[in-house]
Computed example of a mutant assay.
Amino acid sequence: MRLIQPLLLTLTASVAAAASVVVLTDGLTVWSSSLETDAMLSALVNGDHSATRSPHQSTDRASVRDTTSVYAISPDGYSIDPLLRVALLSQRPVRIVQPQGRTTCSTSEGAPVSPVTLRKLLRGTTEAWLHCGTAEGSVKVNGRTYQGIVHLINRGEGWIAVNEINMERYVASVVGAEMPSGWNEEALKAQAVAARSYGLVHLIRPASPDWNLGDTTRWQVYAGQASSTARSLKATEDTRGLVLSHQGGLVETLYAATQTIVEQAHGHLGASMSQHGAQKLAQQGLTYIQILERYYNGAILARIRRDG
């Protein structure tokens, strides 16, 4: 089981609101007390992705004799919904960017960029950082719609589009892209928890100073608004804020389509979920909690939340 240590963390006095992960087991609430840097904690609450320091990680696998279970908890209560920056690597090269509604693109200094100028810039090699859309709006990139803001970045190696989106919206899209929406709702819920845990790991440990993770199978598939279905949205809402923890660390919830792929691709890394296996278990009557317990033995559910 791949872990990120520590899990999350009480903010220091320099940050107004404290964020913690509450670990819930058998009615007992355990608060993580390990401290991280101000920048890392601020990133989790405020969506500041400039922090690139990576916490210590362990690759120890949980013992199959570990009797700790993934416990059921109510999805009620407020959970923080941090911002992720997702690199739209599937949309390279970036050819057409169209903010929807009345929104436009602008430079990093706030100067508006007209559609004509934007098209010229995308065809060129000028280094720049542009912002398109608003947090509540949407932007089309090469014809595909993404909610939230899209940053266009060129550091001399061509343009890359980065979608800045809230975690819960991101999870709903990943669930719809990674699993057929017609699958059993318990399998979809298990996928939602796994996707959220994986996304949070890469919020803490970004792949690049400019973005947290990509949108391809190298990370987990994210297809924007197109893969957010009614059932993926419900699975996300029913598990809102829930992630997997093990011994105070955040589990990097690896998964793959089948058990064969799991063993070939992830066998040396620790616990990993088979998506088709999760569907079969759900059809047999297992809940999403029991499915997660089957694949991530020894893990427990935790909720991201804000104190105060």
Score class of each variant (00 low, 15 high):
Tyr198Val: 07
Leu7Lys: 00
Ser272Met: 06
Ala265Glu: 14
Asp76Gln: 10
Leu118Val: 04
Ile300Leu: 06
Thr103Gln: 13
Gly133Cys: 04
Arg240Pro: 00
Met167Lys: 00
Leu9Pro: 06
Asn212Ala: 12
Arg144Glu: 14
Gly27Gln: 03
Ala187Arg: 06
Pro206Ile: 12
Ala230Trp: 01
Tyr296Ala: 03
Val113Ala: 01
Ala299Leu: 09
Leu24Pro: 00
Arg123Phe: 08
Gly110Phe: 04
His151Arg: 05
His49Gln: 06
Pro82Arg: 10
Tyr78Lys: 09
Leu200Thr: 07
Leu203Cys: 10
Lys189Phe: 14
Ser74Val: 13
Gly277Met: 09
Asn142Gln: 08
Ala271Asp: 15
Thr12Tyr: 02
Ala207Arg: 08
Glu136Ala: 15
Leu121Val: 10
Ala135Tyr: 03
Gln259Gly: 15
Gln247Tyr: 13
Leu254Gln: 09
Thr107Cys: 04
Leu89Thr: 06
Leu152Tyr: 05
Trp129Val: 14
Pro99Phe: 14
Gln264Arg: 10
Asn142Phe: 11
Ala299Asp: 11
Val221Pro: 01
Glu168Asn: 08
Ser274Val: 06
Cys132Leu: 08
Glu293Gly: 13
Glu185Val: 09
Pro93Phe: 03
Gln5Tyr: 12
Tyr222Cys: 02
Gln279Ala: 11
Ser33Val: 11
Leu121Glu: 12
Val175Thr: 11
Thr229Asp: 08
Arg306Met: 15
Ala17Val: 06
Pro112His: 05
Gly47Arg: 01
Lys280Trp: 03
Ile261Leu: 15
Asn297Phe: 07
Ser90His: 01
Lys189Tyr: 13
Ser181Trp: 06
Glu109His: 07
Val23His: 02
His49Ile: 13
Asp38Arg: 05
Ile261Val: 14
Ile80Ser: 14
Val251Glu: 08
Thr10Ala: 14
Gln225Ala: 15
Leu269Met: 12
Thr104Pro: 00
Arg102Val: 07
Asp238Ser: 14
His268Lys: 07
